[in-house]
Amino acid sequence: MNGARGCRRLPTLTAAALTVPLLGGCSGPLSILDPAGPMAQGVAWLWWLMAIFFSLVLLAVGALWIHALRRTPREVTVVEARRIEKCWLIGGGLILPGVSILALLLLGTPVGQRMLPLPVEGEQPLRIDITAHQWWWEVRYPDSGVVTANQLHIPAGRPVDLHLGSADVIHSFWVPRLGGKLDMIPGRTNVLRLQADQPGTYRGQCAEFCGTQHTHMQIVVIAHAEADYQAWVEERAKRRVTPLAGAAGEIFATHCGTCHRVAGVSDGARAPDLSDIGSRPTLGAGVLRNEPGAIARWLHEHRRLKQGNGMPAHDDIDDNQLDAIAEWLETLAP
């Protein structure tokens, strides 16, 4: 019974492998198990329920199997054997999985239903349009005309409906702590309803493989208290930036402005809106933290920092001018 000795090692191994992550806890900026909204909460509960139940099933089946291997069976008559067979097959093969999946379907489906963007009475959910690009997010607030990128400001405590589309390939919008993901498919608009219970910052990530820089297609969701949110929208809606003066301003207009929009300065539509670039948490949809000097670094090294991104190299622009532009961009914060 050499192998049976090995079987005894199993539980130890399993336990070891299980406890290590548990020590780390369930929290994390992208953790499904650290929900911050009702949609994510429902799924977290489902997970724990299923995890416990299915772990028990796994342990039971494994234990039965190993016990069956090690026991010394007594002689049974043909009739007895037939009865035992029926018990196993009907009990384990039909009833156990049958009841489990029935319970799961009846329990789980309504959870999913509550996440649907069904019509609500009273105040309507806030609508925000998000368009995915390789590899950044375009965010538009149709009510106020505000445009931003790679960040999403929402009011906390009430549902928002995100209208998701794509400009090129298939992407998927996912903010794990707020709720499930939904694909962004060219030619279609999908509606995802999310809600953040408390003001705070939540991270999101493109969840459908979308090419070279799929990794660096992140979004930051900032949930404000209702009043703060209103203030932010108003500030952003009326914001007009004063153009950069001098040669740098010229260069910005001819090189950058054709693709990037800066409210009141340029009107490009191919690349992220820069009107509030200075206040964004990250650059390049998650490549760099937006610290002082980061924009300059991005402008100089973006081909290396985010291989394959759509912005042309800036070799033809004088370094000093580039730094001037970066310095100016840093000031663009509402």
Binding site: L102, L105, T109, P110, Q113, P117
Partner: peptide, 14 residues
């Protein structure tokens, strides 16, 4: 029967 079950729970086109 099992596959028809969700018809009792969910609205059709959402």
């Amino acid at each position: 029967l099992f596959v028809a079950l969700p018809l009792l729970i969910l609205p059709p086109c959402v």
